[in-house]
Design a binder for these strands. Structure first.
Ligand SMILES: [Mn+2]
Ligand SMILES: [Mn+2]
Ligand SMILES: [Zn+2]
Ligand SMILES: [Zn+2]
Lengths: 148, 148
DNA sequence: AAAGCAATTGAAATTCATTATCAATATCAC
DNA sequence: GTGATATTGATAATGAATTTCAATTGCTTT
């Protein structure tokens, strides 16, 4: 299953590169591979650290560049928690979701509320907008942190 | 009316400074005054530009510092549209609201949907969180930009 | 297989917003 | 006024992200 998903995502990237006349390099494969291996929201710097362990010679600019390509290819998505660092999460095979973060311990939960999604679209239309996408960040105190 | 509101906001700032044992300086008064004069979402750099016209000697670091104080005092609020620059809006006398932005022309509308607000709280509680605050950014195409 | 050429790379320099440093200056309780 | 100390502006420094560029690589054409 994981194998299957990974194969598909790598295929998508290969097709994306071919379509754009970009080259299939070992660095790009390696960075995608490590990105797919982790399910957390990861920053370019963090991904650079883990990629470096497999290829000491890789440059951080390359990680930034590939992450941008992955977004274009529909494999990654930017997440901005407002701490000054952009993070990335899997896009392919992962439904849209929003984030609920504990301001005390930093724990983040992925959430979706279909009713909210519907109301968002209606709200935009009320102002004549055609809603393309949205970001919703909920901040609060988690159950554990409330018990202190 | 504007006079009345401004007076109140300036009082609040004065009280805040007194409470925190901070000093009431001409720079702080000037920056607050120019901030209150504008209703748009303004960046530190933009505010610095308008403040400079009244006091050529003011430093930009001071603008950054005062903006931070205004947030603490409950007079300003940070808004992050994800373009890499933090912006600020009036907090006092301005109800909470979210933002609907046109990705084509940049126009931003302030919106609130009480039903969404209620559902957000319920959603957080479903995961054991006590919701403290949230940010919701809706992105789409406005009526004018759709007609092209 | 060799050549040719554009795409790619890593290192280093650069940008941009924001923050820290620090000596000079201003505020305010006394 | 005096003095302790908060504040300021100039400047340096930071951290994330991007750009530059010469060297290298991948891929197409012979
Ligand atoms: Mn997520
Ligand atoms: Mn607003
Ligand atoms: Zn927590
Ligand atoms: Zn528009």
């Amino acid at each position: 299953m994981t194998e299957q998903t990974q194969k598909t995502e790598k295929q998508i990237f290969a097709e994306f590169l071919a379509r754009k006349n970009l080259r299939d390099t070992s660095q790009r494969e390696l960075i995608l591979d490590e990105f797919l291996r982790r399910e957390q929201h990861i920053s370019a710097e963090e991904l650079y650290d883990v990629v470096k362990q497999r290829d000491r010679t890789i440059g951080q600019a390359t990680v930034y560049r590939v992450l941008k390509l992955l977004c274009e290819a529909g494999l990654a998505r930017e997440v901005n928690f407002g701490d000054g660092t952009m993070r990335y999460e899997h896009e392919f095979g992962h439904e849209h979701h929003d984030h609920l973060t504990c301001t005390a311990c930093g724990k983040t939960i992925e959430v979706v509320d279909p009713a909210i999604e519907t109301l968002q679209k209606a709200l935009a239309e009320k102002y004549g907008f055609c809603l393309l996408n949205h970001e919703m960040y909920l901040y609060g105190t988690c159950a554990e942190c409330q018990g202190r």
